[in-house]
Design a protein around this nucleic acid. Sequence first.
DNA 1: CAAATAGTGTCTTTAAGACAGTATAGT
DNA 2: ACTATACTGTCTTAAAGACACTATTTG
Lengths: 246, 246
Amino acid sequence: MAKTPLAKPSFPRSGRRVASRPPASHPLLTIAIVTLTLREDGLGTLLIRRDETPYAGRWALPRGVIRPDDMSLAGAARRLLAQAVGVEASHIEQLETFGDTKHDPRGWAVTVAYMALLPADRLGAVRMHAPDKASWWPVVGTSVAPNLAFDHAHILTAAIARLRARAGYTSLPIHLLPQKFTLPDLQRVHEQLLGRSLDKSAFRKRITGLEFLEPVVGERRPASNRPAQLWRAKADHRTVFFDRLL
Amino acid sequence: MAKTPLAKPSFPRSGRRVASRPPASHPLLTIAIVTLTLREDGLGTLLIRRDETPYAGRWALPRGVIRPDDMSLAGAARRLLAQAVGVEASHIEQLETFGDTKHDPRGWAVTVAYMALLPADRLGAVRMHAPDKASWWPVVGTSVAPNLAFDHAHILTAAIARLRARAGYTSLPIHLLPQKFTLPDLQRVHEQLLGRSLDKSAFRKRITGLEFLEPVVGERRPASNRPAQLWRAKADHRTVFFDRLL
DNA sequence: CAAATAGTGTCTTTAAGACAGTATAGT
DNA sequence: ACTATACTGTCTTAAAGACACTATTTG
Protein backbone atom coordinates (compact mmCIF):
# COMPACT_ATOMS: atom_id res chain seq x y z
CA MET A 1 0.00 0.00 0.00
CA ALA A 2 1.07 3.55 -0.78
CA LYS A 3 4.45 2.71 -2.20
CA THR A 4 5.05 6.24 -3.39
CA PRO A 5 8.01 6.35 -5.74
CA LEU A 6 10.88 8.57 -4.73
CA ALA A 7 9.47 12.07 -4.32
CA LYS A 8 12.12 14.36 -5.71
CA PRO A 9 12.75 17.14 -3.24
CA SER A 10 11.42 20.27 -4.80
CA PHE A 11 12.85 23.11 -2.78
CA PRO A 12 15.58 25.33 -4.18
CA ARG A 13 19.20 24.35 -4.11
CA SER A 14 22.13 25.97 -5.80
CA GLY A 15 24.09 23.03 -7.18
CA ARG A 16 26.05 20.81 -4.78
CA ARG A 17 24.37 20.13 -1.49
CA VAL A 18 27.24 20.76 0.84
CA ALA A 19 28.28 23.85 -1.04
CA SER A 20 24.90 25.40 -0.38
CA ARG A 21 25.51 25.47 3.37
CA PRO A 22 27.29 28.22 5.30
CA PRO A 23 31.10 27.83 5.38
CA ALA A 24 31.70 26.99 9.05
CA SER A 25 28.62 24.82 8.90
CA HIS A 26 27.25 22.46 11.45
CA PRO A 27 25.50 19.36 10.30
CA LEU A 28 21.79 19.18 10.91
CA LEU A 29 21.34 17.20 14.11
CA THR A 30 18.20 15.08 14.26
CA ILE A 31 16.79 12.35 16.45
CA ALA A 32 14.94 9.38 14.99
CA ILE A 33 13.06 6.72 16.91
CA VAL A 34 12.58 3.11 15.91
CA THR A 35 9.51 1.89 17.78
CA LEU A 36 9.17 -1.86 17.85
CA THR A 37 6.33 -4.03 19.04
CA LEU A 38 5.42 -7.68 18.79
CA ARG A 39 2.09 -8.88 17.47
CA GLU A 40 1.04 -12.45 16.80
CA ASP A 41 2.45 -12.28 13.30
CA GLY A 42 5.83 -10.94 14.43
CA LEU A 43 7.68 -7.70 14.89
CA GLY A 44 6.12 -4.45 13.84
CA THR A 45 7.44 -0.93 13.60
CA LEU A 46 5.82 2.48 13.67
CA LEU A 47 6.23 4.64 10.59
CA ILE A 48 5.02 8.12 9.68
CA ARG A 49 3.88 9.26 6.27
CA ARG A 50 5.81 12.44 5.56
CA ASP A 51 3.94 15.42 4.19
CA GLU A 52 6.81 17.85 4.34
CA THR A 53 9.23 18.64 1.66
CA PRO A 54 12.21 16.31 1.78
CA TYR A 55 10.83 12.93 0.83
CA ALA A 56 7.20 14.12 1.00
CA GLY A 57 4.84 11.16 0.66
CA ARG A 58 7.48 8.67 1.79
CA TRP A 59 7.34 6.67 4.99
CA ALA A 60 9.88 7.54 7.67
CA LEU A 61 10.72 7.00 11.29
CA PRO A 62 9.29 9.54 13.72
CA ARG A 63 11.96 12.19 13.94
CA GLY A 64 12.71 15.76 14.82
CA VAL A 65 15.33 18.08 16.19
CA ILE A 66 16.48 18.61 19.72
CA ARG A 67 15.15 21.69 21.44
CA PRO A 68 17.03 23.73 24.00
CA ASP A 69 14.42 22.86 26.63
CA ASP A 70 14.81 19.11 26.21
CA MET A 71 16.31 17.72 29.37
CA SER A 72 18.47 15.19 27.57
CA LEU A 73 18.79 13.35 24.31
CA ALA A 74 16.65 10.51 25.62
CA GLY A 75 14.13 13.07 26.83
CA ALA A 76 14.02 14.61 23.39
CA ALA A 77 13.42 11.19 21.90
CA ARG A 78 10.54 10.55 24.30
CA ARG A 79 9.06 13.95 23.50
CA LEU A 80 9.28 13.35 19.77
CA LEU A 81 7.62 9.97 20.02
CA ALA A 82 4.84 11.38 22.19
CA GLN A 83 4.38 14.30 19.82
CA ALA A 84 4.22 12.10 16.76
CA VAL A 85 1.84 9.42 17.97
CA GLY A 86 0.83 10.27 21.55
CA VAL A 87 2.43 7.21 23.04
CA GLU A 88 4.91 6.54 25.81
CA ALA A 89 7.22 3.60 25.28
CA SER A 90 7.93 1.13 28.05
CA HIS A 91 11.61 1.28 27.23
CA ILE A 92 13.78 3.60 25.23
CA GLU A 93 17.50 3.36 24.66
CA GLN A 94 20.06 5.00 22.46
CA LEU A 95 20.99 2.90 19.47
CA GLU A 96 23.72 4.61 17.54
CA THR A 97 24.46 7.91 15.87
CA PHE A 98 24.58 7.96 12.12
CA GLY A 99 26.39 10.48 10.03
CA ASP A 100 24.82 10.81 6.65
CA THR A 101 26.04 12.94 3.81
CA LYS A 102 23.88 11.38 1.16
CA HIS A 103 20.24 11.06 2.10
CA ASP A 104 19.20 14.43 3.41
CA PRO A 105 18.77 16.78 0.47
CA ARG A 106 19.29 19.71 2.81
CA GLY A 107 22.90 18.60 2.94
CA TRP A 108 24.52 17.06 5.87
CA ALA A 109 22.72 15.29 8.63
CA VAL A 110 23.69 13.51 11.81
CA THR A 111 20.97 11.37 13.36
CA VAL A 112 20.96 10.07 16.90
CA ALA A 113 18.83 6.94 16.66
CA TYR A 114 16.80 5.59 19.55
CA MET A 115 15.06 2.27 19.91
CA ALA A 116 11.73 2.25 21.75
CA LEU A 117 9.79 -0.84 22.78
CA LEU A 118 6.02 -0.84 23.09
CA PRO A 119 3.94 -3.68 24.56
CA ALA A 120 1.31 -5.03 22.21
CA ASP A 121 -1.48 -4.22 24.65
CA ARG A 122 -0.70 -0.50 24.43
CA LEU A 123 -0.84 -0.36 20.66
CA GLY A 124 -4.37 0.99 20.84
CA ALA A 125 -3.08 4.15 22.46
CA VAL A 126 -1.19 5.11 19.33
CA ARG A 127 -2.79 8.18 17.84
CA MET A 128 -4.04 6.98 14.50
CA HIS A 129 -6.47 9.90 14.02
CA ALA A 130 -5.07 10.66 10.61
CA PRO A 131 -4.98 7.01 9.65
CA ASP A 132 -2.53 7.32 6.83
CA LYS A 133 -0.21 9.52 8.85
CA ALA A 134 1.09 6.92 11.33
CA SER A 135 0.90 3.21 10.78
CA TRP A 136 2.31 -0.07 12.00
CA TRP A 137 4.26 -2.01 9.46
CA PRO A 138 5.28 -5.63 9.80
CA VAL A 139 8.99 -6.29 9.88
CA VAL A 140 9.95 -8.84 7.27
CA GLY A 141 13.36 -10.32 7.87
CA THR A 142 15.47 -7.34 8.68
CA SER A 143 13.51 -4.54 7.07
CA VAL A 144 10.07 -3.30 6.10
CA ALA A 145 8.01 -3.07 2.91
CA PRO A 146 8.04 0.65 2.09
CA ASN A 147 11.06 2.42 0.71
CA LEU A 148 11.92 4.63 3.64
CA ALA A 149 13.02 8.26 3.56
CA PHE A 150 16.54 9.41 4.46
CA ASP A 151 18.81 6.62 5.72
CA HIS A 152 16.00 5.24 7.83
CA ALA A 153 16.08 1.78 6.30
CA HIS A 154 19.61 1.46 7.58
CA ILE A 155 18.67 2.70 11.05
CA LEU A 156 15.68 0.37 11.21
CA THR A 157 17.85 -2.60 10.30
CA ALA A 158 20.28 -1.74 13.07
CA ALA A 159 17.48 -1.54 15.62
CA ILE A 160 15.98 -4.86 14.59
CA ALA A 161 19.37 -6.54 14.74
CA ARG A 162 19.98 -5.09 18.19
CA LEU A 163 16.66 -6.25 19.59
CA ARG A 164 17.06 -9.74 18.11
CA ALA A 165 20.55 -10.06 19.53
CA ARG A 166 19.49 -8.78 22.93
CA ALA A 167 16.77 -11.39 23.07
CA GLY A 168 19.55 -13.93 23.32
CA TYR A 169 21.32 -12.52 26.34
CA THR A 170 19.18 -9.95 28.14
CA SER A 171 15.80 -9.52 29.74
CA LEU A 172 15.00 -6.66 27.36
CA PRO A 173 12.09 -8.45 25.66
CA ILE A 174 9.89 -8.11 28.76
CA HIS A 175 9.21 -4.58 27.53
CA LEU A 176 7.30 -6.02 24.61
CA LEU A 177 4.84 -7.57 27.07
CA PRO A 178 2.27 -6.05 29.44
CA GLN A 179 3.41 -5.41 33.00
CA LYS A 180 2.04 -8.78 34.06
CA PHE A 181 2.73 -11.76 31.88
CA THR A 182 3.27 -15.49 32.06
CA LEU A 183 6.48 -17.38 31.50
CA PRO A 184 5.03 -19.07 28.42
CA ASP A 185 4.30 -15.56 27.09
CA LEU A 186 7.87 -14.50 27.70
CA GLN A 187 9.22 -17.64 26.13
CA ARG A 188 7.14 -16.99 23.01
CA VAL A 189 8.58 -13.47 22.77
CA HIS A 190 12.15 -14.74 22.96
CA GLU A 191 11.36 -17.48 20.46
CA GLN A 192 9.83 -14.99 18.03
CA LEU A 193 12.84 -12.71 18.24
CA LEU A 194 15.41 -15.47 18.05
CA GLY A 195 13.58 -17.32 15.32
CA ARG A 196 13.84 -20.71 16.98
CA SER A 197 12.09 -22.64 19.71
CA LEU A 198 13.48 -22.97 23.19
CA ASP A 199 13.17 -25.77 25.71
CA LYS A 200 10.49 -24.95 28.25
CA SER A 201 12.27 -26.44 31.23
CA ALA A 202 15.62 -24.83 30.52
CA PHE A 203 14.04 -21.47 29.78
CA ARG A 204 12.15 -21.42 33.07
CA LYS A 205 15.17 -22.46 35.08
CA ARG A 206 17.21 -19.67 33.55
CA ILE A 207 14.65 -16.90 33.85
CA THR A 208 13.52 -17.67 37.37
CA GLY A 209 17.09 -18.29 38.46
CA LEU A 210 18.02 -14.72 37.55
CA GLU A 211 15.48 -13.47 40.07
CA PHE A 212 14.44 -10.31 38.32
CA LEU A 213 10.82 -11.47 38.11
CA GLU A 214 8.37 -12.08 40.91
CA PRO A 215 5.11 -14.02 40.74
CA VAL A 216 1.79 -12.17 41.10
CA VAL A 217 -0.90 -14.02 42.98
CA GLY A 218 -3.84 -13.41 40.59
CA GLU A 219 -4.14 -16.08 37.95
CA ARG A 220 -4.34 -15.89 34.18
CA ARG A 221 -6.70 -15.07 31.34
CA PRO A 222 -8.66 -18.29 31.32
CA ALA A 223 -8.49 -20.93 28.64
CA SER A 224 -9.68 -24.48 28.62
CA ASN A 225 -6.51 -25.63 30.31
CA ARG A 226 -4.39 -25.07 33.34
CA PRO A 227 -3.97 -21.34 33.94
CA ALA A 228 -0.46 -19.94 34.04
CA GLN A 229 1.11 -17.96 36.84
CA LEU A 230 1.45 -14.23 36.22
CA TRP A 231 4.84 -12.62 36.78
CA ARG A 232 6.10 -9.06 36.77
CA ALA A 233 9.48 -7.38 36.92
CA LYS A 234 10.65 -6.60 40.42
CA ALA A 235 10.36 -2.99 41.51
CA ASP A 236 14.05 -2.12 41.03
CA HIS A 237 14.23 -3.83 37.68
CA ARG A 238 16.98 -2.97 35.22
CA THR A 239 17.73 -5.02 32.16
CA VAL A 240 19.49 -8.20 33.25
CA PHE A 241 22.35 -9.63 31.22
CA PHE A 242 22.58 -13.40 31.07
CA ASP A 243 25.94 -15.07 31.55
CA ARG A 244 25.21 -17.37 28.64
CA LEU A 245 23.29 -17.14 25.42
CA LEU A 246 19.86 -18.72 25.33
CA MET B 1 50.67 17.59 38.54
CA ALA B 2 49.01 20.50 36.76
CA LYS B 3 45.70 20.28 38.55
CA THR B 4 44.55 23.65 37.35
CA PRO B 5 41.45 24.73 39.22
CA LEU B 6 38.38 25.41 37.11
CA ALA B 7 39.37 28.09 34.64
CA LYS B 8 36.38 30.39 34.42
CA PRO B 9 35.46 30.94 30.79
CA SER B 10 36.28 34.50 29.98
CA PHE B 11 34.56 35.21 26.71
CA PRO B 12 31.46 37.40 26.57
CA ARG B 13 28.04 36.09 27.41
CA SER B 14 24.87 38.03 27.95
CA GLY B 15 23.26 36.32 30.93
CA ARG B 16 21.78 32.80 30.52
CA ARG B 17 23.70 30.47 28.29
CA VAL B 18 20.92 29.12 26.19
CA ALA B 19 19.32 32.53 25.85
CA SER B 20 22.47 33.81 24.21
CA ARG B 21 22.08 31.47 21.26
CA PRO B 22 20.03 32.14 18.14
CA PRO B 23 16.37 31.15 18.51
CA ALA B 24 16.17 28.17 16.10
CA SER B 25 19.54 27.10 17.41
CA HIS B 26 21.41 23.89 16.82
CA PRO B 27 23.50 22.43 19.53
CA LEU B 28 27.22 22.39 19.01
CA LEU B 29 28.07 18.94 17.70
CA THR B 30 31.46 17.61 18.75
CA ILE B 31 33.31 14.33 18.64
CA ALA B 32 35.45 13.15 21.53
CA ILE B 33 37.74 10.14 21.57
CA VAL B 34 38.65 8.02 24.56
CA THR B 35 41.93 6.31 23.71
CA LEU B 36 42.75 3.40 25.96
CA THR B 37 45.90 1.35 26.24
CA LEU B 38 47.27 -1.20 28.63
CA ARG B 39 50.68 -0.88 30.28
CA GLU B 40 52.13 -3.11 32.95
CA ASP B 41 50.55 -1.00 35.64
CA GLY B 42 47.11 -1.11 34.09
CA LEU B 43 44.85 0.90 31.82
CA GLY B 44 45.94 4.28 30.57
CA THR B 45 44.16 6.98 28.64
CA LEU B 46 45.32 9.79 26.41
CA LEU B 47 44.50 13.34 27.52
CA ILE B 48 45.20 16.74 26.03
CA ARG B 49 46.01 19.87 27.96
CA ARG B 50 43.65 22.55 26.66
CA ASP B 51 45.04 25.93 25.82
CA GLU B 52 41.90 27.40 24.34
CA THR B 53 39.29 29.35 26.11
CA PRO B 54 36.64 27.04 27.53
CA TYR B 55 38.43 25.19 30.29
CA ALA B 56 41.86 26.48 29.28
CA GLY B 57 44.57 24.70 31.26
CA ARG B 58 42.36 21.72 32.02
CA TRP B 59 42.89 18.22 30.72
CA ALA B 60 40.39 16.90 28.20
CA LEU B 61 39.77 14.14 25.72
CA PRO B 62 40.97 14.79 22.19
CA ARG B 63 37.99 16.36 20.51
CA GLY B 64 36.82 18.50 17.63
CA VAL B 65 34.00 19.10 15.24
CA ILE B 66 32.94 17.19 12.19
CA ARG B 67 33.94 18.69 8.89
CA PRO B 68 31.94 18.45 5.69
CA ASP B 69 34.73 16.49 4.06
CA ASP B 70 34.83 13.78 6.71
CA MET B 71 33.65 10.57 5.15
CA SER B 72 31.76 9.44 8.22
CA LEU B 73 31.54 9.98 11.93
CA ALA B 74 34.08 7.25 12.56
CA GLY B 75 36.29 8.82 9.92
CA ALA B 76 36.06 12.15 11.66
CA ALA B 77 37.03 10.49 14.92
CA ARG B 78 40.07 8.88 13.28
CA ARG B 79 41.06 12.20 11.75
CA LEU B 80 40.76 14.03 15.05
CA LEU B 81 42.85 11.45 16.87
CA ALA B 82 45.52 11.56 14.18
CA GLN B 83 45.49 15.37 14.22
CA ALA B 84 45.79 15.57 17.97
CA VAL B 85 48.55 13.04 18.56
CA GLY B 86 49.57 11.62 15.19
CA VAL B 87 48.48 8.13 15.96
CA GLU B 88 46.24 5.57 14.32
CA ALA B 89 44.30 3.32 16.65
CA SER B 90 44.05 -0.40 16.05
CA HIS B 91 40.35 -0.27 16.76
CA ILE B 92 37.79 2.49 17.00
CA GLU B 93 34.12 2.18 17.77
CA GLN B 94 31.27 4.47 18.59
CA LEU B 95 30.50 4.57 22.26
CA GLU B 96 27.48 6.74 22.88
CA THR B 97 26.25 10.23 22.17
CA PHE B 98 25.96 12.56 25.11
CA GLY B 99 23.73 15.58 25.27
CA ASP B 100 25.10 18.11 27.65
CA THR B 101 23.48 21.38 28.61
CA LYS B 102 25.69 22.07 31.59
CA HIS B 103 29.39 21.72 30.88
CA ASP B 104 30.04 23.67 27.74
CA PRO B 105 30.03 27.37 28.57
CA ARG B 106 29.24 28.13 24.96
CA GLY B 107 25.82 26.71 25.71
CA TRP B 108 24.55 23.51 24.44
CA ALA B 109 26.69 20.66 23.26
CA VAL B 110 26.11 17.19 21.88
CA THR B 111 29.14 14.92 21.85
CA VAL B 112 29.48 11.74 19.87
CA ALA B 113 31.98 9.72 21.90
CA TYR B 114 34.30 7.14 20.36
CA MET B 115 36.48 4.58 22.06
CA ALA B 116 39.87 3.86 20.48
CA LEU B 117 42.24 1.08 21.48
CA LEU B 118 45.98 1.36 21.06
CA PRO B 119 48.49 -1.47 21.57
CA ALA B 120 51.16 -0.72 24.14
CA ASP B 121 53.91 -1.25 21.58
CA ARG B 122 52.66 1.66 19.48
CA LEU B 123 52.61 4.13 22.35
CA GLY B 124 55.94 5.52 21.21
CA ALA B 125 54.30 6.79 18.06
CA VAL B 126 52.17 9.24 20.00
CA ARG B 127 53.29 12.75 19.22
CA MET B 128 54.52 14.05 22.52
CA HIS B 129 56.52 16.95 21.02
CA ALA B 130 54.86 19.45 23.27
CA PRO B 131 55.21 17.23 26.29
CA ASP B 132 52.61 18.93 28.42
CA LYS B 133 50.17 19.03 25.58
CA ALA B 134 49.34 15.33 25.29
CA SER B 135 49.97 12.79 28.01
CA TRP B 136 49.07 9.32 29.14
CA TRP B 137 47.26 9.12 32.44
CA PRO B 138 46.74 5.96 34.42
CA VAL B 139 43.15 4.92 34.92
CA VAL B 140 42.44 4.41 38.58
CA GLY B 141 39.27 2.46 39.19
CA THR B 142 36.81 4.00 36.81
CA SER B 143 38.34 7.45 36.27
CA VAL B 144 41.54 9.45 36.11
CA ALA B 145 43.40 11.85 38.38
CA PRO B 146 42.85 15.23 36.73
CA ASN B 147 39.56 17.05 36.88
CA LEU B 148 38.54 16.85 33.24
CA ALA B 149 36.99 19.57 31.12
CA PHE B 150 33.40 19.47 29.89
CA ASP B 151 31.57 16.23 30.71
CA HIS B 152 34.63 14.22 29.76
CA ALA B 153 34.93 12.45 33.10
CA HIS B 154 31.52 10.98 32.45
CA ILE B 155 32.44 9.91 28.92
CA LEU B 156 35.70 8.39 30.11
CA THR B 157 33.91 6.36 32.75
CA ALA B 158 31.51 5.02 30.14
CA ALA B 159 34.39 3.96 27.90
CA ILE B 160 36.25 2.20 30.69
CA ALA B 161 33.11 0.38 31.76
CA ARG B 162 32.48 -0.70 28.18
CA LEU B 163 35.99 -2.04 27.65
CA ARG B 164 35.99 -3.90 30.98
CA ALA B 165 32.63 -5.45 30.22
CA ARG B 166 33.67 -6.44 26.70
CA ALA B 167 36.73 -8.20 28.10
CA GLY B 168 34.28 -10.68 29.60
CA TYR B 169 32.48 -11.68 26.44
CA THR B 170 34.36 -10.52 23.35
CA SER B 171 37.72 -10.73 21.65
CA LEU B 172 38.03 -6.93 21.71
CA PRO B 173 41.08 -6.91 24.03
CA ILE B 174 43.34 -8.27 21.27
CA HIS B 175 43.49 -4.68 20.03
CA LEU B 176 45.45 -3.75 23.14
CA LEU B 177 48.19 -6.14 22.04
CA PRO B 178 50.64 -6.11 19.13
CA GLN B 179 49.61 -7.93 15.99
CA LYS B 180 51.46 -11.02 17.17
CA PHE B 181 51.06 -12.07 20.76
CA THR B 182 51.01 -15.16 22.93
CA LEU B 183 48.04 -16.72 24.69
CA PRO B 184 49.58 -15.94 28.10
CA ASP B 185 49.78 -12.29 26.95
CA LEU B 186 46.13 -12.32 25.97
CA GLN B 187 45.13 -13.96 29.20
CA ARG B 188 46.96 -11.25 31.16
CA VAL B 189 45.07 -8.57 29.25
CA HIS B 190 41.73 -10.14 30.05
CA GLU B 191 42.75 -10.61 33.65
CA GLN B 192 43.82 -6.97 33.96
CA LEU B 193 40.57 -5.72 32.52
CA LEU B 194 38.37 -8.09 34.48
CA GLY B 195 40.31 -7.62 37.68
CA ARG B 196 40.56 -11.30 38.50
CA SER B 197 42.65 -14.26 37.46
CA LEU B 198 41.46 -16.86 34.99
CA ASP B 199 42.23 -20.53 34.73
CA LYS B 200 44.90 -21.11 32.11
CA SER B 201 43.46 -24.33 30.76
CA ALA B 202 39.91 -23.07 30.49
CA PHE B 203 41.01 -19.80 28.90
CA ARG B 204 43.00 -21.56 26.22
CA LYS B 205 40.25 -23.99 25.41
CA ARG B 206 37.80 -21.13 24.99
CA ILE B 207 39.98 -18.85 22.92
CA THR B 208 41.38 -21.45 20.57
CA GLY B 209 37.96 -23.08 20.26
CA LEU B 210 36.54 -19.85 18.82
CA GLU B 211 39.01 -20.12 15.96
CA PHE B 212 39.56 -16.44 15.33
CA LEU B 213 43.28 -16.76 16.05
CA GLU B 214 45.92 -18.65 14.12
CA PRO B 215 49.39 -19.62 15.28
CA VAL B 216 52.44 -17.99 13.71
CA VAL B 217 55.42 -20.23 13.24
CA GLY B 218 58.13 -17.92 14.59
CA GLU B 219 58.63 -18.31 18.30
CA ARG B 220 58.62 -15.79 21.13
CA ARG B 221 60.71 -13.08 22.79
CA PRO B 222 63.10 -15.34 24.67
CA ALA B 223 63.21 -15.81 28.41
CA SER B 224 64.85 -18.40 30.54
CA ASN B 225 61.97 -20.77 30.07
CA ARG B 226 59.91 -22.44 27.43
CA PRO B 227 59.01 -19.90 24.72
CA ALA B 228 55.35 -19.38 23.98
CA GLN B 229 53.68 -19.75 20.62
CA LEU B 230 52.85 -16.52 18.83
CA TRP B 231 49.30 -16.04 17.53
CA ARG B 232 47.58 -13.45 15.40
CA ALA B 233 44.02 -12.67 14.41
CA LYS B 234 42.92 -14.39 11.22
CA ALA B 235 42.78 -12.22 8.13
CA ASP B 236 39.00 -11.76 8.13
CA HIS B 237 38.90 -11.02 11.83
CA ARG B 238 35.95 -9.20 13.36
CA THR B 239 35.32 -8.98 17.07
CA VAL B 240 34.04 -12.34 18.24
CA PHE B 241 31.31 -12.58 20.83
CA PHE B 242 31.57 -15.45 23.29
CA ASP B 243 28.48 -17.47 24.07
CA ARG B 244 29.37 -17.37 27.77
CA LEU B 245 31.09 -14.95 30.08
CA LEU B 246 34.69 -15.69 30.97
C1' DC C 1 -12.94 -37.68 31.39
C1' DA C 2 -10.95 -35.60 27.29
C1' DA C 3 -8.25 -31.84 25.65
C1' DA C 4 -4.98 -28.50 26.22
C1' DT C 5 -1.52 -26.07 28.14
C1' DA C 6 1.28 -25.22 32.67
C1' DG C 7 4.76 -26.73 35.30
C1' DT C 8 8.31 -30.32 37.38
C1' DG C 9 11.70 -34.11 37.62
C1' DT C 10 15.30 -36.81 35.81
C1' DC C 11 18.74 -38.32 32.83
C1' DT C 12 22.10 -37.00 29.40
C1' DT C 13 25.35 -33.95 27.51
C1' DT C 14 28.47 -30.17 27.35
C1' DA C 15 31.66 -27.17 28.86
C1' DA C 16 33.93 -24.85 32.45
C1' DG C 17 37.05 -25.06 36.73
C1' DA C 18 40.65 -27.15 39.42
C1' DC C 19 44.91 -28.78 39.29
C1' DA C 20 48.42 -32.11 38.49
C1' DG C 21 51.59 -33.37 35.25
C1' DT C 22 54.56 -32.88 31.11
C1' DA C 23 57.40 -29.86 27.75
C1' DT C 24 61.04 -26.77 26.50
C1' DA C 25 63.66 -23.01 26.66
C1' DG C 26 67.90 -20.41 29.21
C1' DT C 27 71.43 -20.55 32.70
C1' DA D 1 70.47 -30.33 36.42
C1' DC D 2 67.62 -26.37 37.89
C1' DT D 3 64.24 -22.88 37.18
C1' DA D 4 60.65 -20.74 35.09
C1' DT D 5 57.00 -20.53 32.29
C1' DA D 6 54.27 -22.93 28.39
C1' DC D 7 51.14 -26.25 27.44
C1' DT D 8 48.16 -30.64 28.04
C1' DG D 9 45.31 -34.11 30.27
C1' DT D 10 42.05 -35.70 33.57
C1' DC D 11 38.73 -35.48 37.01
C1' DT D 12 35.09 -32.81 39.05
C1' DT D 13 31.30 -29.74 38.86
C1' DA D 14 27.59 -26.82 37.07
C1' DA D 15 24.26 -25.94 34.00
C1' DA D 16 21.82 -26.57 29.73
C1' DG D 17 19.04 -29.76 26.63
C1' DA D 18 15.88 -33.52 25.91
C1' DC D 19 11.89 -35.30 27.20
C1' DA D 20 8.74 -37.77 30.02
C1' DC D 21 5.64 -37.10 33.53
C1' DT D 22 2.38 -34.67 36.63
C1' DA D 23 -0.99 -30.67 37.46
C1' DT D 24 -5.01 -27.93 36.67
C1' DT D 25 -8.28 -25.76 34.28
C1' DT D 26 -12.79 -25.79 30.86
C1' DG D 27 -16.29 -28.08 28.38
